[in-house]
């Protein structure tokens, strides 16, 4: 049972469109899966390799803009963004890695944060290339119905999950964890840390870029403030993984479910809507202090906490 849980979940999810859920419910589901993809990508770089990135919006935005510009400049379907973004995002990630991977720990984190902001400002100011603050609008949607969007993002998520799992269980994954645990020790054991950190960064970036390409095609409109957003993309990415569980396979999925639902619920309560960053911030603080490894990572701790109330066996 436990061995096949992935296939069971995937199979059940594939059947969901047959339920005939409302368009809004499908939208929520699509968002949850999209955030799981971004979370898994971030987890690969930050959870396993230990390089905490505060700038994943940069990769998300580059992916989104690759798709958007293929449409607006070349006039071809935004779906071509999937193959194109692999190259484009990888090149950008290589550049960012060259600059930021010189730094360690929190300094790397802040450098990537700065990168995210640079990308936003450049996208806002290069009006001739990106369209500036006007953004890019896809004039015709591929499908009205959400079913196909759901299957596409589900496929991306399934491939990402498989990829992350394969990488972490391979030699590469052990290198990543070794770098996270002690970079100097890893280096002295003959691991080329710069090379493997760059690999982790590029993999993570390309997957995040995929989510960006999907976002453009799904939403039909992007502008720099949306796709390069610091709080609404970069920080939420971190929260998805922190809440769910750092360096766990299912953590990003659990985190995405909680964060998307929470955001929707808070937004639907009048008065409380403006306070959603406060609640997110408080949630982040509480999680870090009490469940530093997230819900999945500290599941035994949670179980003990709630188990105390039931009579002792």
């Amino acid at each position: 049972m436990k061995k096949h849980i992935t296939y069971i979940v995937l199979g059940l999810l594939a059947l969901v469109p047959l339920l005939g859920l409302s368009s809004y419910m499908m939208h929520i589901l699509i968002l949850v899966i999209m955030w799981s993809v971004i979370g898994m990508a971030w987890n690969l770089l930050s959870g396993y390799c230990g390089q905490v990135s505060f700038g994943h919006a940069a990769f998300f935005g580059v992916g989104a803009y690759t798709a958007g510009m293929l449409y607006s400049k070349l006039g071809i379907s935004g779906w071509w963004g999937f193959p194109a973004s692999v190259v484009v995002v990888a090149v950008f990630a290589l550049g960012i890695g060259y600059i930021c991977l010189r730094l360690r720990g929190p300094y790397f984190a802040l450098a990537t944060l700065a990168m995210g902001v640079i990308f936003r400002i450049v996208a806002e100011n290069l009006v001739g290339v990106t369209g500036g603050d006007l953004g890019i609008m896809l004039r015709e949607r591929t499908w009205i119905d959400k079913t196909w969007y759901f299957y596409i993002i589900l496929l991306v998520a399934a491939v990402t999950y498989y990829l992350v799992r394969k990488i972490i269980e391979s030699k590469l994954g052990y290198y990543f964890v070794a770098i996270r645990e002690d970079q100097d020790a890893a280096e002295s054991l003959g691991i080329n840390t710069t090379k493997y950190k760059t690999i982790a960064l590029i993999l993570s970036a390309v997957i995040t870029g995929f989510a960006g390409v999907f976002y453009t095609n799904y939403m039909g409109y992007i502008d720099p403030k949306v796709v390069f957003a610091l709080h609404d993309i970069s920080i939420i990415t971190i929260m998805v993984v922190m809440v769910g569980g750092v360096a766990t396979y299912w953590g990003p999925v659990v985190g995405a479910i909680i964060m998307v639902l929470l955001a929707e619920i808070i937004r639907s309560i009048p008065k409380l809507g403006t306070a959603h960053h406060t609640l997110f911030g408080v949630l982040l603080i509480v999680i870090i202090i009490f469940l530093p490894n997230g819900i999945v990572g500290d599941f035994s701790k949670l179980k003990r906490l709630f188990g105390m109330r039931s009579p002792a066996p």
């Binding site: 959870g47 905490v52 750092v246 408080v282 870090i288 530093p292």
Partner: peptide
């Protein structure tokens, strides 16, 4: 607190910042 990521304190300050900025908005 013991955790996988040593950057937890930095992420914590992000949370504090979010709360302060949002309270100011309110």
């Amino acid at each position: 607190v013991d955790s996988i990521l040593p950057e937890n304190q930095v992420i914590l300050t992000v949370g504090i910042g979010m709360v302060l900025a949002n309270l100011a908005t309110i």
